[in-house]
Design a protein around this nucleic acid. Structure first.
Lengths: 140, 140
DNA sequence: TAATTTTACTTTCAATTCGGAAGTAAATAT
DNA sequence: ATATTTACTTCCGAATTGAAAGTAAAATTA
């Protein structure tokens, strides 16, 4: 269930540290990533991602992100057991952050990252604004 | 001392998760932030930041970031006891990531963040490319 | 020059967080 | 009617963190 929102204790009034206080763990941005890419995901879909998050961890990340209003949880249209997660606008607005991680990794971890990511990074280099807009409109 | 670089075990070939594997903790980007802002910092300078990192944690973050070649450590010109940390180009290239965190927080945590950050965010909104360039050239 | 302070750490340890495995319960498929 | 799937929850040992205290060398002060 969606837990009560207990007050966040920010370390400072710095926007960077505050953002990290909210979703600066190793999993939150990967959930956002999947939702940017696929538009909607179920618990199982997230579980199947390459990074293999444990179900306990996925469960509490999804709760936190929902409490933060970065994602919303709704019922599956036909299957009552399944829930569908999507991005809110607030969550979608993290896409530029993600895009910059991609560019950095494309430059410095190039021989390690997958081909589609390289392609996406190339698009970003050629037309950052356009590429971002294209993705962000697709899901609104 | 600068530890041996033990092989990084990336969770996947995704550029986002890989970047998070390298510096996706709650402190690394704050060290980078201080260096973007001030150009150079000593151990004590970092310790004095608002977030109050413990010295044990600061010590191992600095080591990791140095091993990753995101920062370099050099002697203080006059004081043998003090070391000066600076960004490498690789580290400076994280500035766009940081800038996007600032924009996001300025939009969604506006009443919590400090005034200079708001000003910086405003500059970014008006001229992202120019603002980034101005900062990134300042320290090369 | 001797004593004090400063700086850059290291050490220790309790508390929090994490990963992995196993379990549960309801809904769906067979 | 039974088996399977899905979305979790529960446990627990291991890893990471934060806070406090300690250390050693260099610089400053008396």
């Amino acid at each position: 269930m969606k837990a009560k929102k207990k007050k966040e204790n920010f370390r400072s009034d710095c926007p960077i540290s505050s953002a990290l206080d909210l979703f600066g763990d190793k999993w939150s941005l990967l959930v956002i990533r999947d939702l940017v890419y696929f538009g909607e995901r179920t618990f199982k879909d997230f579980s199947n991602a390459d990074e293999k998050i444990s179900s306990a961890r996925l469960s509490d990340r999804l709760c936190k992100l929902e409490v933060l209003d970065l994602i919303i949880k709704s019922n599956h249209p036909t299957n009552k057991k399944v829930f569908v997660y999507r991005l809110t606008e607030k969550g979608m607005d993290l896409f530029p952050v993600i895009a910059e991680y991609v560019r950095w990794s494309n430059k410095y971890l190039n021989d390690h990252i997958n081909e589609p990511a390289k392609q996406f990074s190339k698009q970003l280099e050629e037309d950052r604004e356009g590429t971002l807009l294209k993705f962000m409109q697709k899901s609104s």
